[in-house]
Design a protein around this nucleic acid. Structure first.
Length: 573
RNA sequence: CGGUGAUUAGCGCAGCUUGGUAGCGCAUCUGGUUUGGGACCAGAGGGUCGAAGGUUCAAAUCCUUCAUCACCGACCA
C-alpha cells in the first residue's frame, strides 16, 4: 500500500473523552472513529488488524473441527420468547419492530437461532457431534458503553455452538475448544489466563473465561499462590474463617450516632475497626405474581464487599439483584439507610460466613441515628441463614485448599460454557439415538470478542510513541520510509524497488510516499506500530547499506542494499 | 439507573464572571524556502458557539426546557 492511496488519518492529540491508552491510541493511529456512544467505524488501519485477528481465530476453529456458518443479526422475537429470554435478558436486548409490527431483536448472542437450526436440520445421532461457529456483529445495548471498542454496543464476536448426545462428548469438545483458545491467544502473543467463571445470563454449568492481563482490565481475577487455581472474582469462593466464634461478652447497648451512616463513619465514631461492624443490605426477593416483593437482608462484615453474583444465586433472591429503595427500607426497617441492622428485622436474613463468626459486633438499630453495640448471633438474632456472599480479598485462603489468593486485573476476551440442555429443551432440539428414541441434545458454547482483542492487544503493547504490534497482528508488517525522495532519484528508485519486491512476496508493506519531512513519517510509523521499518536515504546508500529499525526494541541496524529483502524475509518468519 | 461535569472549526482549548464584529494552537489548502525525528515565511478556507424557547435595542455570554457525550457510582446501609 502506498500512503498516497491510503487514509492514514493519524492525530497528534486524542479526543479528551478517551481515557484508557488503547482507546486513545486507536483514535490517534487512525484505526477507529466514533459514530455515537458505543458505535465505531473501523478505518482501513483498524480493519486490517481486525481481519488478522479474525483469520487466526478462523484457522484455529477450523483446526478444532468447527464448521463456519453465518446467522442473521436480526432475529424473530418468537424464538426468544420460547427460551424465556425475551423477558429475562433485560435492557441489553435491543428490540425492534418491522413494518408489520412484528417483534424482532438485534442478536446479542445466537443460542436461539443455532438451536432452532439444529432442531430443524439435524435428525440422527449419526450426524453428531457438531460444532458450528460464526464471526459476526453482535449488538448489546450496554448501560454504560466505555473505553472505545473495549465495551462497545456493536462489536464483532466469534461464537461457536456444539451439540452432543452424551455429556462426555460435550466435555471432550469443551476441552478441544479450551485448547484451541490457548492456541489462539498464544499465536497472538498475548499474555493471558484461563479462569473459572460464572455462567451469567447464558446459563449452564461449567465455564471458563480467558483474560488478557492488563491493569485497565474491567474484571478482577484471582489466583492461588500455590496451585493452578484461577477464577473470576465473581466465582471465587470465600471460605468460612477457620475459627470458632468467640462467646458473647457484652450486652446490647443502644447508642446515639447522629449523622453517622457509612461503615467507615461508624467505626471512626466508635473508635473500632470496620471488621467489628456489620453491614446490612436490603435487596428484593422474587415475589410471586400479585404479591408485593419480599425484602431480604444480606449481612456482611464491614470491610467486605457484597458479591452480587453470589447473592443472585441464592434461592429466592431477585435476579438481577435489586437493592431496596428508600420506601422499602422505611417499611421494613423503619429508618433511613445507614441505620439498618439485623436485630429485630422481620425479614429473611442471610449472613455471610465471615460475618457469622463475629461476636459483640456493632450494627444499625433500625432507628435513624442509632446503632447497637454488643450484638451477638443466636442470643440476639435467631432465624438466619449462612452463605458465601462476599468478594474474596487478597491474602484469603484459596478455595482449592492450597495457598493464598492473589488478585490481578484482566480483560475478558474469551468465554466457554458447558451449557447443558437449557436451550435444546426449550426449543425441543433432539435427535433419534441408537435405540431409535428421541433424545434432547446437550450443548456447549464458546465466544471470543474479536474486536475487544484488538483493544486488549494494544493495552498490553504500547509505549510513549504509540502502538507496538507484533508480526501477526500488525496492520502492515513493513514500512518503507524514504528520505527526501523528491530530490533523490536513487532513493525513489530503491524505495520503489523494495516496495514492489515485498508486495510481490505477499508481505503487507506500507510505502510512505508522501512529500513529508522524515520526522512526520517516523512518528506516524511508530504511532501505528508497524514492526519493521526500512529507512532509505542517500546518506546510507553511499555506504552500500540501508537502515533498518525495529519497533519493538527500537534497535537500528544497517543492512546491505542487496540483502534487504532476505533480511526482512528472515525477520518475518 | 443515580451522581457529577462537559458541549465554541477535524483535534486540543480560550472567550461566558461584567451581553456589544467568533478567537488561539495543531491539522487542512495555495505559493515559496526546506528535508535523517512532529520545520520556516507569506497567504487562504473552515463555525446556526449542541437544540428549542425566553429576557434584551443587542445573547456564545443571562434564564428555562430538551438532547448528546463523558467520568464516577451502581457497595448504600
Amino acid at each position: 500500500m502506498r500512503t498516497s492511496n491510503y487514509l492514514l488519518s493519524t492525530q497528534k492529540e486524542a479526543p479528551s473523552d478517551a481515557v484508557i491508552i488503547s482507546h486513545q491510541l486507536m483514535l490517534r493511529a487512525g484505526m477507529i472513529r466514533k459514530l455515537a456512544s458505543g458505535l465505531y467505524t473501523w478505518l482501513p488501519t483498524g480493519l486490517r488488524v481486525l481481519r488478522k485477528v479474525e483469520r487466526i481465530v478462523r484457522e484455529e476453529m477450523e483446526n478444532a473441527g468447527a464448521l463456519e456458518i453465518l446467522m442473521p443479526v436480526v432475529q424473530p422475537a418468537d424464538l426468544w420468547m420460547e427460551t424465556g429470554r425475551w423477558d429475562k435478558y433485560g435492557g441489553e436486548l435491543l428490540r425492534v419492530k418491522d413494518r408489520h409490527d412484528r417483534d424482532f431483536v438485534l442478536g446479542p448472542t445466537h443460542e436461539e437461532v443455532i438451536t432452532d437450526l439444529v432442531q430443524k436440520n439435524v435428525n440422527s445421532y449419526k450426524q453428531l457431534p457438531l460444532n458450528f461457529f460464526q464471526i459476526q456483529t453482535k449488538f448489546r445495548d450496554e448501560t454504560r458503553p466505555r473505553f472505545g471498542i473495549m465495551r462497545a454496543r456493536e462489536f464483532t464476536m466469534k461464537d461457536a455452538y456444539s451439540f452432543h448426545i452424551e455429556k462426555s462428548c460435550l466435555e471432550n469438545t469443551y476441552q478441544k475448544m479450551f485448547a484451541a483458545y490457548c492456541c489462539i491467544f498464544e499465536r497472538m502473543g498475548l499474555e493471558y489466563r484461563a479462569v473459572l467463571a460464572d455462567t451469567g445470563s447464558i446459563g449452564g454449568n461449567m465455564s471458563h473465561e480467558f483474560h488478557v492481563l492488563a491493569k485497565n482490565g474491567e474484571d478482577a481475577i484471582v489466583f492461588s499462590t500455590e496451585s493452578d487455581f484461577a477464577a473470576n472474582i465473581e466465582k471465587a469462593e470465600a471460605l468460612a474463617p477457620n475459627v470458632k466464634r468467640p462467646p458473647a461478652n457484652a450486652d446490647v447497648t443502644t447508642i446515639e450516632t447522629p449523622n453517622v451512616h457509612s461503615i467507615e463513619d461508624v467505626a471512626k465514631f466508635l473508635k473500632i475497626k470496620t471488621t467489628q461492624v456489620v453491614k446490612t443490605l436490603l435487596v428484593e426477593g422474587n415475589g410471586k405474581k400479585g404479591e408485593s416483593t419480599p425484602i431480604i437482608a444480606l449481612i456482611l462484615r464491614g470491610d467486605h464487599n457484597l458479591n452480587e453474583i453470589k447473592a443472585q444465586q441464592i434461592e429466592g433472591v431477585a435476579t438481577p439483584l435489586v437493592f431496596a429503595d428508600k420506601e422499602q427500607i422505611k417499611s421494613v426497617a423503619n429508618c433511613e439507610a445507614g441505620s439498618i441492622g439485623p436485630k429485630g428485622l422481620d425479614t429473611r436474613i442471610i449472613v455471610d460466613r465471615s460475618a457469622e463468626k463475629l461476636a459483640d459486633f456493632v450494627c444499625g438499630a433500625n432507628e435513624s441515628g442509632k446503632h447497637l453495640t454488643g450484638v451477638n448471633w443466636d442470643r440476639d438474632i435467631n432465624n438466619y441463614e449462612i452463605a458465601d456472599l462476599r468478594d474474596v480479598l487478597e491474602g484469603d485462603p484459596s478455595p482449592c485448599g492450597k495457598g493464598r489468593l492473589e488478585i490481578a486485573r484482566g480483560i475478558e476476551v474469551g468465554h466457554i460454557f458447558q451449557l447443558g440442555d437449557t436451550y435444546s429443551k426449550a426449543l425441543n432440539a433432539g435427535v433419534l439415538n441408537q435405540q431409535g428414541k428421541s433424545q434432547i441434545l446437550t450443548m456447549g458454547c464458546y465466544g471470543i470478542g474479536i474486536s475487544r482483542i484488538v483493544a486488549a492487544a494494544i493495552e498490553q503493547n504500547n509505549d510513549k510513541n504509540g502502538i507496538i504490534w507484533n508480526d501477526v497482528l500488525a496492520p502492515f508488517s513493513v514500512v518503507i520510509v524514504p528520505m527526501n525522495m523528491k530530490k533523490s532519484i536513487r532513493v525513489a528508485e530503491l524505495s520503489q524497488k523494495y516496495y514492489t519486491q515485498l508486495k510481490g512476496m505477499n508481505i503487507d508493506v506500507l510505502f510512505d510516499d508522501r512529500q513529508e519531512r522524515p520526522g512526520i513519517m517516523f512518528a506516524d510509523a511508530e504511532l501505528i506500530g508497524i514492526p519493521h521499518m526500512l529507512i532509505i536515504g542517500d546518506r546510507s546508500i553511499d555506504n552500500g547499506v540501508i537502515e533498518y529499525k525495529e519497533r519493538q526494541s527500537g534497535l537500528k541496524q544497517d543492512v546491505n542494499i542487496e540483502s534487504v529483502i532476505d533480511f526482512i524475509k528472515q525477520k518475518l518468519t
